[in-house]
Simulated assay, not measured.
Amino acid sequence: MKKVFIILLFVAVSAFAANPDDLIGEKFIDVYGKDEKGKIVKLSDVAGKGKPVVVVYWAIGDVDTYKVLPEINKIGKKYKDKIILIAPLLSVSDDKEVKEAKKLLHFDFPVWLAGSDSIKAYSIEKVDVPYILFIDKDGTIRNIMVTARDLKKIEENIKNLIK
């Protein structure tokens, strides 16, 4: 009986766990963080305001993130007048560590220290980074890439946002 209960509990919890694919086509979920100056910022400060937004969740020390962020920075510069690119950091960090990471990784788009609401809202696991949201100019999530490593697909998604 105990095993049956545990199995039913697991099935029930799994049914309510958010799947990133379920968010595609939906309005973005407003989350908050702190910008590099310590100011509280919300995704609604930039998303849904007439310009596409690319949100790259990352973590300090993640090898895949370290390989991809500099390349995303290059792509972001290519489309800088057409998109807003932000990088919420999921690791517990401070300003000094953020500056060091940006310098080491050669990227210059804004970093936000993400709140736990981002992790809950978008069901982000530690192994999911880089986790990228592609939000159109109206605030609709057009795609989500989990453990994003394919730079061609990242750029394709950006091109689709600005069409």
Score class of each variant (00 low, 15 high):
residue 76 G to N: 04
residue 99 K to L: 03
residue 140 T to K: 15
residue 92 V to W: 04
residue 117 D to H: 03
residue 48 G to L: 13
residue 79 Y to T: 01
residue 115 G to S: 12
residue 26 E to N: 05
residue 16 F to D: 08
residue 97 E to L: 14
residue 24 I to G: 08
residue 134 F to D: 00
residue 55 V to M: 14
residue 72 I to W: 03
residue 52 P to D: 05
residue 131 Y to M: 08
residue 79 Y to K: 00
residue 85 L to T: 04
residue 27 K to V: 15
residue 26 E to L: 06
residue 38 G to N: 05
residue 32 Y to D: 06
residue 105 L to A: 11
residue 123 S to E: 15
residue 85 L to E: 01
residue 52 P to I: 12
residue 146 V to A: 06
residue 138 D to C: 14
residue 63 V to I: 11
residue 158 I to A: 13
residue 50 G to C: 07
residue 39 K to H: 07
residue 87 A to E: 09
residue 126 K to C: 00
residue 1 M to N: 13
residue 146 V to I: 14
residue 67 K to P: 01
residue 12 A to M: 09
residue 99 K to N: 04
residue 78 K to P: 00
residue 58 W to P: 00
residue 73 N to D: 15
residue 33 G to N: 06
residue 76 G to D: 01
residue 134 F to E: 01
residue 45 D to C: 11
residue 29 I to H: 00
residue 37 K to I: 09
residue 105 L to V: 02
residue 62 D to F: 01
residue 41 V to Q: 02
residue 17 A to S: 10
residue 53 V to G: 08
residue 59 A to K: 05
residue 100 E to H: 05
residue 64 D to T: 06
residue 111 V to D: 07
residue 28 F to E: 03
residue 20 P to V: 14
residue 162 I to W: 00
residue 79 Y to F: 08
residue 147 T to L: 13
residue 67 K to S: 12
residue 41 V to T: 03
residue 98 V to M: 07
residue 86 I to M: 03
residue 133 L to P: 07
residue 60 I to R: 09
residue 89 L to F: 03
residue 133 L to W: 03
residue 96 K to H: 07
residue 26 E to S: 07
residue 97 E to S: 09
residue 54 V to Y: 01
residue 20 P to F: 14
residue 154 I to Q: 06
residue 129 V to Q: 09
residue 144 I to T: 15
residue 76 G to T: 12
residue 150 D to V: 09
residue 52 P to C: 11
residue 12 A to H: 02
residue 30 D to S: 10
residue 161 L to Y: 02
residue 18 A to F: 15
residue 116 S to G: 11
residue 64 D to Q: 02
residue 74 K to H: 02
residue 101 A to Q: 06
residue 129 V to D: 05
residue 93 S to T: 15
residue 10 F to G: 04
residue 19 N to W: 12
residue 3 K to P: 06
residue 159 K to S: 06
residue 109 F to Q: 01
residue 99 K to D: 08
residue 89 L to N: 14
residue 55 V to T: 14
residue 132 I to M: 06
residue 83 I to W: 03
